[in-house]
């Protein structure tokens, strides 16, 4: 019977191991954020946000980087949202049983597993070279749009799937066409879920570095872009550039820029989670 006592001891021990592991990642994240705040917080001031990049760490700012990120965010949204939502609608409402939809579905699952740097190679060849867009904002946005398209499509489908059929039937029953039903009934009802997915997808785009480096986004851009055809840099690339330098002052700049980047991604994720919770409450039909 001491056997049972031993089993119970193992059981209790595992409980603590489990709690420990659960908090391991979170504690790491906290250590890390604390570290970054200590390193970078004092470096952030108005000049840091409004200065152009410079070879002197103390004068360098992130103006071109954050404006580039804003440009990329906007352009990617304009390209990816209509396409992703449209494809999601097609798969869920039109293509339930046809072959094309089945192939698209399999394909999306496969695309979700393709490393982001491969999208960079695609963008480099197709957008930069064949379409002659060069290392422009537009080429970068198109590349990231393809990257986040699967996320938006899947989120749209999930949100539409949650809309009860009775709503569609009510609309059809009044003589509405399929598209009218989707446009006036289904999409508004699913909008919360779709929006959540879009924001999460865009937050992913904001944090991407590798594909943009591959298509030729530059680390040193001494002007603020004013057209989609301009060359650009983004915050993650600026961070990468600073972090790659041996001088301590640039690491400090990197930490400061990371704080700004984290504020942006956490804010986007926070909004997405908030919307999801609100939408889920509303959706208990």
């Amino acid at each position: 019977m001491s056997n049972i006592q031993r089993n119970r001891n193992i059981d209790t021990a595992f409980k603590y191991v489990g709690i420990g592991c659960t908090f391991f990642g979170i504690v790491m994240l906290l250590i890390f954020i604390g570290n970054i705040l200590v390193d970078g917080l004092t470096r952030i001031d108005w000049d840091f946000l409004t200065n152009l990049p410079s070879r002197r760490a103390s004068k360098a700012g992130i103006l071109t980087a954050w404006t580039g990120t804003a440009w990329i965010l906007g352009l990617t949204a304009i390209i990816a949202i209509p396409m992703g939502v449209a494809a999601g609608i097609y798969l869920q409402e039109y293509g339930k049983k046809n072959r094309l939809a089945h192939i698209i579905e399999l394909n999306i699952a496969n695309l979700a597993g393709v490393p982001s740097i491969i999208y960079g190679l695609l963008g480099l060849e197709i957008f930069v070279r064949v379409m002659r867009l060069g290392g422009s904002l537009l080429a970068g946005a198109l590349t990231l749009a393809l990257l986040i398209l699967p996320i938006i499509i899947v989120a749209t489908r999930e949100a539409i799937k949650a809309v009860p059929n009775s709503l569609r039937e009510a609309s059809y029953g009044m003589g509405a066409t399929k598209w009218q039903t989707i446009w006036y009934q289904v999409l508004p009802a699913a909008s919360g879920g779709i929006l959540t997915g879009i924001i999460l997808a865009l937050s992913r785009a904001v944090g991407e570095t590798a594909p943009l480096i591959v298509i030729g986004a530059l680390a040193y851009v001494p002007f603020v872009a004013d057209s989609p055809m301009d060359e650009f840099t983004v915050l993650p690339i600026q961070i990468f550039n600073w972090v790659s330098r041996p001088q301590q002052e640039f690491l400090v700049n990197g930490a400061a820029a990371i704080i700004i980047l984290l504020i942006i991604t956490f804010a986007m994720n926070g909004i997405a989670v908030y919307l999801r919770n609100r939408w889920q409450k509303k959706v208990s039909w």
């Binding site: 396409m83 449209a86 494809a87 097609y90 039109y94 698209i104 394909n107 190679l121 499509i153 598209w179």
Partner: peptide, 27 residues
């Protein structure tokens, strides 16, 4: 009009297939 919309939506779905083909072709 309904048909045009359906084809438009299907085209967006096709973009994902074009992406895969593009990746494989480029590589």
């Amino acid at each position: 009009g309904e048909k045009v919309i359906e084809y438009g939506l299907a085209f967006s779905g096709l973009v994902t297939i074009l992406t895969t083909i593009g990746i494989i072709w480029v590589l």
